[in-house]
């Protein structure tokens, strides 16, 4: 990564965390749809980020969120889990041309179809870890499952809308 990319990523971190803490922290629809938009920062990291760095960033972001949510370890565990799965999942869903001309998994570069195949399952994994660790296992299984499904849809929709609104249409990063 060039130094300009580092600055972009730091800005991305600040923006996503700010949105999470100031706006979506208490945004809950019908008691089942929670919004954890901060995973957007982790999902939109460039393709060439090393696995170790991904895990470290996942852990740090998770702990940072946990401090605000008084749930030390829960967000961190979920974020580390998706950061571990991410490189493997990106490999599986490689499009025909490879990832040569696009530095990051962004909606405007990869297209909606690829982006949803990429992001939605990872968001589901993250939210599933989150809600099941929170209740401490299988108690209220169905209620937690409802929360996982609706929250994933909510987070995914927010992530897509944010990208349509604030990312340039060019096939270049930012």
């Amino acid at each position: 990564m060039k130094s300009r990319d580092y600055i972009t990523q730091i800005m991305s971190f600040v923006v996503f965390i700010t949105i999470q803490l100031l706006f979506t922290r208490n945004m809950v629809i019908y008691g089942v749809a929670f919004n954890y938009i901060y995973v957007g920062f982790l999902l939109l990291l460039p393709f060439d980020t090393s696995r170790l760095l991904l895990l470290a960033l996942g852990f740090t972001t998770g702990i940072f969120l946990d401090i605000f949510y008084d749930s030390l370890g829960i967000h961190a565990a979920s974020a580390v889990a998706i950061m571990f799965v991410r490189p493997w999942w990106i490999n599986i869903i490689t499009p025909r041309g490879g990832y040569d001309d696009s530095p990051a998994p962004l909606l405007n570069q990869m297209g909606f179809q690829w982006f949803s195949t990429y992001a939605f399952p990872l968001i589901v994994i993250h939210h599933a870890c989150l809600f099941y660790i929170e209740v401490g296992g299988g108690t209220h299984f169905w209620f937690s499952l409802t929360k996982v499904i609706f929250s994933s849809a909510f987070t995914f929709a927010t992530l897509v809308i944010l990208q349509y609104l604030f990312f340039e249409k060019r096939r270049r990063m930012l």
Binding site: L52, L55, F59, L72, G73, I74, A76, V80, I133
Partner: peptide, 13 residues
Amino acid sequence: LFIFLEVVCSWLI
């Protein structure tokens, strides 16, 4: 590293 971080998280939780 993944295993290590998850163990740390479990310990924290």
